[in-house]
Write a protein that binds this DNA or RNA. Sequence first.
DNA 1: TCGTTATATTTAGCTGACTAACTAATAACA
DNA 2: TGTTATTAGTTAGTCAGCTAAATATAACGA
Lengths: 155, 155
Amino acid sequence: MDIHQAESLDLVFKHVAKLHKQTVHALLSGKGIYPGQPPVLRALAERDGQSQKELAEKLQITPATLTVMLGRMEKNGLVERRPDDADQRVSRVYLSAKGRLKHDELSSFMYEMEALCFANFTMEERIVFRRLLLQMYDNLVRADLKPPKPDEAQQ
Amino acid sequence: MDIHQAESLDLVFKHVAKLHKQTVHALLSGKGIYPGQPPVLRALAERDGQSQKELAEKLQITPATLTVMLGRMEKNGLVERRPDDADQRVSRVYLSAKGRLKHDELSSFMYEMEALCFANFTMEERIVFRRLLLQMYDNLVRADLKPPKPDEAQQ
DNA sequence: TCGTTATATTTAGCTGACTAACTAATAACA
DNA sequence: TGTTATTAGTTAGTCAGCTAAATATAACGA
């Protein structure tokens, strides 16, 4: 399929998303980190010590997935997991010094991707694109096939 | 992160793409088919008997991934693989009757997703969104971190 | 003709995603 | 207080994606 001839907007979106993801992965492969890990580091940098449940909700992945990922990150020394003081079921996740360092290193990556995707977008185009993306997101949320995390459902 | 407060357009896009994918998966899980399979069926319905190399290029996945996926689909009776007459390295992939049937069943799914994402978009919004998506796609292609398939590079 | 290089597919191993089932801890209830 | 229900995290299994290496075949050039 030639994307420029596609009839379905949904298919166009899917193709762009695929190439976007492949590009992210290609960029990250040179930085000694796996593609799933930056969002985890970012979430913890924003708020350290979240429970795994909170983290999984924030990242919109299942607890099972997060457990496995954290296992690898802990093994690589990026995060530490410690039991909660008040509830022994709960495990709280903290950035290690190494993880914090890695997160700082990755800040340039975010600007890199932004520039790569949108450098030739005018300010108006960015505003419109953002609005339309959010409109699409709200449609998907309304469909309620995959629930959003709680603080978004309130907005 | 609350998507509506995000500063980075790239992050907004990533979140929409994630929810989109999760929604596709949730919809397909009720149809007796795995999420990776519809694009394979679609590509073969357009042109049956493609070599695996052609198919992998068209789908923008690696030959290794396709081999594994086709293995499962062949096992499920959706496709058949036969050696090429002229070149023993080449394996050609054909839709089975079951695969063709399944592809037909899935045509409604495509319209379903389109409606779900964009039903409340005006015609103008659709046109603009499409243009901006293609602009983003072209930026990603230009970055050349993940090459597109040949017939797109020519356009 | 024969050795080297290129090509198509496969295999092994890994990551990130899911589901279902499991385990242990906690909360709720009678 | 003891039982039942719920919760947080884990484990096992599967799929889709990648890379690197392996295998068989084809093309090429001396």
